[in-house]
Simulated scan of single mutants.
Amino acid sequence: MYAPCSADRLDGELLDVTGWVAAELIEGALLVTDRGLYGPGGRAFYAPAEGDPAGPFLWHGDTP
């Protein structure tokens, strides 16, 4: 199963959520990306839109 990323850094990318448990689908994920504020090796935090764990996953900020 794939969930689309939306808003900012990874807009339009598909996130492979195959095998994720319900808690992971609700909490979201830190995705390693070179397109974020911190460059290569930085992470962008994406979490699903409220009430829709199947996506889209929305951008919530970057972290080193």
Rank of each mutant, 00 (worst) to 15 (best):
residue 62 D to W: 02
residue 38 Y to S: 05
residue 23 A to S: 14
residue 35 R to P: 02
residue 64 P to Q: 12
residue 58 L to S: 02
residue 60 H to E: 06
residue 46 Y to R: 03
residue 33 T to W: 00
residue 12 G to P: 02
residue 23 A to M: 11
residue 51 G to W: 11
residue 18 T to W: 08
residue 31 L to F: 05
residue 15 L to M: 15
residue 57 F to K: 01
residue 59 W to K: 00
residue 32 V to Y: 00
residue 44 A to T: 04
residue 13 E to W: 10
residue 16 D to Y: 09
residue 33 T to A: 05
residue 8 D to W: 02
residue 6 S to L: 09
residue 38 Y to A: 09
residue 12 G to W: 06
residue 15 L to K: 02
residue 26 I to M: 08
residue 51 G to C: 12
residue 64 P to D: 10
residue 62 D to M: 07
residue 39 G to R: 09
residue 36 G to L: 01
residue 43 R to W: 03
residue 32 V to E: 03
residue 52 D to R: 13
residue 51 G to H: 10
residue 18 T to C: 10
residue 33 T to K: 01
residue 59 W to M: 01
residue 52 D to G: 08
residue 47 A to S: 14
residue 2 Y to H: 09
residue 54 A to L: 15
residue 58 L to C: 10
residue 20 W to L: 15
residue 44 A to P: 01
residue 12 G to L: 08
residue 43 R to I: 12
residue 40 P to A: 15
residue 63 T to V: 15
residue 55 G to F: 09
residue 31 L to V: 11
residue 43 R to D: 04
residue 20 W to F: 14
residue 30 L to M: 08
residue 17 V to Q: 11
residue 46 Y to M: 13
residue 8 D to Y: 00
residue 32 V to P: 00
residue 9 R to N: 02
residue 1 M to E: 14
residue 47 A to Y: 03
residue 6 S to I: 04
residue 43 R to N: 06
residue 49 A to N: 07
residue 64 P to Y: 09
residue 36 G to M: 02
residue 53 P to S: 13
residue 54 A to Q: 13
residue 41 G to L: 14
residue 54 A to E: 15
residue 25 L to E: 06
residue 48 P to W: 03
residue 45 F to N: 03
residue 34 D to L: 01
residue 16 D to R: 05
residue 40 P to R: 15
residue 2 Y to I: 08
residue 48 P to F: 06
residue 56 P to N: 13
residue 9 R to G: 00
residue 1 M to C: 12
residue 50 E to R: 14
residue 26 I to G: 02
residue 21 V to K: 12
residue 26 I to D: 06
residue 32 V to H: 00
residue 34 D to C: 04
residue 3 A to R: 03
residue 33 T to F: 02
residue 28 G to D: 09
residue 20 W to C: 14
